[in-house]
Structures are given as structure tokens and as C-alpha cells.
Design a protein around this nucleic acid. Structure first.
Lengths: 283, 283
DNA sequence: ATTATAGATGATTTAAACTCATCTATAATC
DNA sequence: GATTATAGATGAGTTTAAATCATCTATAAT
């Protein structure tokens, strides 16, 4: 067809406003430019798009048809631009409640200090809403995840509140909180392996299960029990003196935190964020 | 958003072909130009649209979304351009069967000789198909039509085949074909007025009615009867010696041929055609 | 190894797009 | 009924944006 898109844009604006002047203002051009563009279109199509009376333009039949299509076409494109440009400006992290509340959100201040212009939104739990263009950070089995997607491998240990540990350990029946993952692909936490590493004789233990590590950790912080959980998740509490490992040997779990298709994340900001997160996790 | 439409066009073609080179060929540009355009887009959106491996590009998530929207958006616009540009290249006249067959089609050769590059299609009768962008030539009452839309005012006369006229006129019972218009807004043809103008004593007359002038005219040409009809429609036959007016006084009818909203016809070709038609009718 | 290919990059050239000055027609104001 | 103001038309001139060219890289195929 050989018509210029800019001419179409100019025409569309003129049609919408019913005025070259107003269209020019919208597009930050001179009315002359709009006039030239419309004439260019008209001559290429060899038909009039506007009826010109003095100080008044009015769409012709063909002009109406084209203006409508151009408006819809440009709108379609603008909406997509709007949508994806959000992904360019804002980071939307989707992860587990435990990782979000215990690691990500507390550390976010540091990220914001380094990159104050980048907005970060963390959504956690099951909420699928607005998954589009979000950056997923998942918890899974190391062997079922591509090596380049892994952010950190998880070691587990048993932790307890320092003030409560002596009492909890001296007790005949140890109470240890475990996590029973909702995800059936994840095997149960290797508490037996940890016990074998830390006790000669397997003590009498009462296990309590929750479906999120967060809950067991909070129980442990409150001194109600010990918790067998991720070193990554407990780290903020250990550093804050609220939890301490009770044994001397942590165990490797085969779990990891990872970002599926990590290399495919297309926004500069997402890449920046992943880089920052990885540094945070290995620290 | 401030992204260039040409960059979007380049990106859309690249996405569709999965290749900058192919996109460049489609748009008659160099692959470099496509590369520049895509980079320009990516930097403005601050995200990647393609994953680049060597000699292979692959859309990112955001790239897919944008490519889809851009394709649909541009297609919408191109379809409208295609549709209306047809109106710019081709003239589609819609008119009555009688006018088309007796006047327009016979004269079309002359138009084609003058403008060989312009295609003309004449559709007649009730067919509404493809009314869009067609140029209507209608038959109606002068007083209900805007003066500037009128192509020619109609005078009526009674005609007969020259060889048959003496016999038909000498007969006691004259047989005259009339038209009873399907359109209820049109009053009956003023045959009484014609009779008053051409006879002192009203003769004995048998009237035959058809809903199209064409039919009465053909009957008259075949010598079966006389016909009271439009001077415009009978002119080709009169000039060809197949019909002759039987009286000396034609009558004005209040009918006219007109083009509704004549001034609004937007294609250069339509205007050219209307000009030619008007010249034809007043000749 | 060698060649060929797709794309990236940066400098240069070209062409398209925008503006400016001028003009016309008309509506509003006095 | 002259005067002013306004929206758009027109054509020449200028500027900016876009395309190309030359060069380079990485890799797949021979």
C-alpha cells in the first residue's frame, strides 16, 4: 500500500479531534505537518479523507472507515506497549510465602537503596493474579532444575531459640517442627540424615508438620519447639540472635531456590534484580 | 510511550519472519536498519524483545506479546487501507436497471476510452451487495432532492417505432405503455398532461403498466405499442432511428436523475465520473 | 582450517519530515 | 461594510531521523 505510518498517525489524530490544529498539539507538531501528512495519504489513496470547509474538516465515508481502523489498530499496539513497558519499569517477584517474608522482603530495603528508581512488587502464595511478566523464584529439587537456573542450593539444620534450647534438648521427647511440602514432587526433608549426623543414638522425637517452613520457624523463635529448616530462611534469625543451630552438622537437602528459564528474563531490571538476589543468597 | 512506528513495523516483520534479514527484504531495507530499529525499541522499553543467539533470534515473553499486538494492529489498518483504496481505484456505480442498461452501459465505452486506467463496475437493480463506497445514481422527485445533487431533470414523451407509428396512431384504441414505479414516493407519470398538450380531444387509450421503463421501451421498439417515457432513456433509440416521438410537445415530469450527497463523493475517480456523466446527460 | 552467514556496531550519507513564511477563505466583531 | 482573527493550504527551506556502508564477531557448515 505504501502509506507512511506517521501519516496515518497524523490522520488518526486529526480524525479523532476533528481538527488539524488539535491533532498537531497532541502530536507536538505544527498544523502544517498534519495537513501535509493528510494530503500525502489522500494522494496515495487517490481519494479524499476529509471534506474541507473553511475552519472545519469532516470525515468522508472512506475517511470514517480508515479513521476507525487506525484508531483500533494503534490502540491495540499501544495497549501492548503499555503492558510490557510496565515489565520494563517494575519488577514483580512471585515466590513462596516463607522466602518472601523471611528473606526477600527484609532484604528489599538494600535493593531499593541501590536502585531507588526501580519499583519492586513481591507477591507470594498461591495468587496467580498478574503472573504475566512476573519473575518467579521457586523452591524445588536440584536434579529437576537446569543448573544455570539455580540461585542457591539448600542446606538444612535444626534450630532453636537460644534461651529455650537447653530445656528443649534436655527433654526426653524432643519436639521438632518439619515441613510437609504441598508440592508432591518434593521429597520429605531429610531429618533422618540430620539425626544420623548429629546423634549417635537416635533420641525419642515428636515431629510436628506444617506446610510452610515459616510456621515452624516462628514456633521455634517463640521457644515452643526446635525446627528443621533451611539455612537460608533461618539466617536472618540466626544473625539476629533469635535462633541458633542446635547441632554441629547441617545436611544437604537436594532442594534449591531457582528461577525457571532464568536466562530468558528479558527486562534489564529483572536481570539486575536476579544478580542482586544471587549475591544476597551466597553471602 | 514515545516509540517509533517504523521501529514497530520493523520489529513486527522480524518477529514474523524470525529473521532480521527476511524482515529487511520484506520492508526493502538493510538488515542493519532492522537491527537498529529493534535496538531502539528495546532501549526505550528497557527490556529485550529477542533472545539473540548467533544467526538465530527468538522472541522473549514480552516480545511475543508485542509482536502479536503489532501484527494485529497493523493488519487492522492494512485491511482498511486495502478496502478503501479499492474505492480509489475502481468506480462502482449503483443505479436502476433501466438507466444502467439504456444509458450508462452503452456510453461506458466512451468513458473507458477517455480514462482507460479506471475500472468501472455498474450494478443495478435491488442488489445491495457491496453498496459500500459505491456511487449511487438514483431516480427521484426534483423537489425532494438537493439542487446541487441533480444530474438532469427529466422530460417525458410518447415514442413509438417509426415503422409502427402510423398503424398505432390510426388505431381507434391507442396502446401506451406507462411505468408504475415501485417507489411509492414517486407520483405516476403525467400522461394526462402530455395528452392535454398533444391532443384536442382525448382519444381512446389502453394503458399498459410495467414497473420499469425499460420494458415499455422495449415493447415500443418491437412495434407492439407506444411508450410514455423519459427522453433520457429513449434518446439512444431515437438517435439510432428505432424510436421516434409521436407528439410535438414533451412534458416536464418533476423527476430527475441525481446522486445523493453528490459533493461528498471522495474519490478522484468518482468525481471524474460524475463530471463525465453530467456532460453525457445534458448533451 | 576455511568459508559463509546472521547479526552488532559506529560513522557517514541520504531522504523524509517538520517548520517557516505566505496566502486564502470565512466567520466574528465593531 | 471594513477589520480582525482563525483554520487550513501551499511551497520553499531546514533539520532531524533513518538508512546505508564498512567493519567486526561469533558460529555453523564444509
Amino acid at each position: 500500500m505504501q502509506v507512511s505510518l506517521q501519516a496515518l498517525k497524523a490522520f488518526e489524530a486529526a480524525a479523532r479531534h476533528g481538527s488539524f490544529k488539535a491533532a498537531a498539539e497532541e502530536l507536538s507538531l505544527s498544523p502544517t505537518a498534519i495537513s501535509h501528512h493528510v494530503q500525502n495519504l489522500e494522494s496515495r489513496l487517490s481519494l479524499s479523507l476529509f471534506h474541507r470547509s473553511v475552519r472545519k474538516i469532516q470525515l468522508t465515508q472512506a475517511g470514517k472507515r480508515l479513521a476507525d481502523a487506525a484508531s483500533r489498530g494503534f490502540r491495540t499496539i499501544e495497549q501492548a506497549l503499555e503492558e510490557i513497558s510496565l515489565a520494563g519499569r517494575k519488577i514483580q517477584v512471585a515466590t513462596t510465602t516463607s522466602f518472601a517474608s523471611l528473606v526477600l522482603i527484609p532484604a528489599l530495603d538494600d535493593f531499593q537503596r541501590q536502585f531507588p528508581s526501580i519499583a519492586v512488587k513481591v507477591s507470594s502464595g498461591e495468587s496467580i493474579e498478574n503472573q504475566l511478566y512476573s519473575l518467579p523464584i521457586r523452591f524445588g529439587n536440584t536434579e529437576s532444575v537446569a543448573a544455570e537456573d539455580i540461585l542457591c542450593r539448600e542446606t538444612f539444620d535444626v534450630f532453636g531459640a537460644p534461651s529455650a534450647v537447653p530445656a528443649l534438648m534436655s527433654n526426653n521427647a524432643l519436639r521438632i517442627a518439619l515441613t510437609r511440602w504441598k508440592n508432591p514432587a518434593l521429597q520429605a526433608p531429610p531429618i533422618d540424615s540430620w539425626l544420623a549426623n548429629n546423634f549417635n543414638l537416635k533420641p525419642d522425637i515428636e515431629f510436628i508438620s506444617h506446610d510452610q517452613e515459616l510456621i515452624g520457624i516462628q514456633q521455634a523463635v517463640m521457644g515452643k519447639c526446635l525446627v528443621f529448616c533451611s539455612a537460608t530462611l533461618s539466617k536472618p534469625f540466626v544473625q539476629g540472635g533469635l535462633l541458633t543451630p542446635v547441632g554441629s552438622h547441617s545436611v544437604d537437602t537436594g532442594y534449591c531456590y531457582y528461577c525457571p528459564d532464568k536466562s530468558h528474563y528479558d527486562s534489564n531490571n529483572n536481570q539486575l534484580f536476579l544478580h542482586w538476589l544471587q549475591a544476597l543468597l551466597v553471602a
